Simulated scan of single mutants.
Amino acid sequence: MAGRGVATAMVFLDDVTAGNGALQIVPGSHRAGPAPRDRTEPTGLLVVAARTDVRGAVTVEAPAGSTLLFPGLVVHRSGPNRTGRDRRSPLLCFQPAGRPELAGLPYRAEHLSDLP
C-alpha cells in the first residue's frame, strides 16, 4: 500500500510561520490508511478534501534548524508563501530495507490513478 512504512523528515532551513506557508498536518490521520486521492488534480497526489477529515489539522511553526518527523500517510500540506522571506525545507523520505529505490523506478503517470 502506498506510503506504508515510509517516514519523512522535514528540515527547516528558515523560520517557518503560517504567513510563509508552514506545513499543516492532521495528527493521527495515518491510522485510517491512505486518504482518497483527487483524480481530477493533475498530479493525482492531492487528497479529496470533502472526503478527508481535516478538522484536527495543526500548523507547524518552527525556527530554522528544527526537524519534523512524520509518517508518510499523515495527511499534510503547506500553503503559499505570502512573505518576502524564504521557506526552504528539504524533505528526506525513509523507507524499509528491500523496497525499490524511487530513483530506480520509472515514472508512470497512469499509475497515479491506482492510488487510493
Rank of each mutant, 00 (worst) to 15 (best):
32 A>T: 10
32 A>W: 07
34 P>R: 01
34 P>N: 02
34 P>I: 02
35 A>Q: 04
38 D>A: 05
39 R>E: 11
40 T>F: 11
40 T>G: 13
40 T>Y: 10
42 P>L: 06
42 P>N: 08
42 P>S: 08
43 T>A: 14
43 T>C: 13
44 G>R: 06
45 L>V: 14
45 L>N: 15
46 L>C: 15
46 L>S: 15
46 L>M: 15
46 L>K: 15
47 V>S: 07
47 V>G: 05
48 V>H: 07
48 V>P: 05
49 A>D: 12
49 A>N: 14
49 A>T: 12
49 A>Y: 10
50 A>I: 09
51 R>M: 11
52 T>C: 02
53 D>F: 06
55 R>Q: 09
56 G>M: 09
56 G>V: 09
56 G>F: 09
57 A>N: 03
58 V>W: 08
58 V>A: 02
59 T>K: 08
59 T>M: 04
59 T>N: 08
60 V>I: 09
62 A>Q: 05
63 P>R: 13
65 G>T: 07
66 S>V: 03
67 T>H: 13
67 T>Y: 12
68 L>I: 05
68 L>C: 00
68 L>T: 02
70 F>A: 07
71 P>H: 00
71 P>V: 06
72 G>H: 00
74 V>D: 04
75 V>H: 03
75 V>D: 03
76 H>P: 02
76 H>A: 02
77 R>K: 12
77 R>T: 10
77 R>Q: 13
79 G>P: 09
80 P>M: 13
81 N>Y: 02
82 R>G: 10
82 R>Q: 09
84 G>A: 13
84 G>L: 10
85 R>Q: 15
85 R>L: 15
85 R>V: 13
85 R>T: 14
85 R>P: 12
87 R>S: 00
87 R>I: 01
89 S>I: 06
90 P>S: 02
91 L>A: 14
91 L>G: 11
91 L>M: 13
91 L>V: 11
92 L>D: 06
93 C>P: 13
93 C>K: 12
94 F>S: 01
95 Q>W: 01
97 A>N: 12
97 A>Y: 11
98 G>T: 07
99 R>P: 14
99 R>G: 14
100 P>W: 00
100 P>C: 00
101 E>V: 14
101 E>T: 13
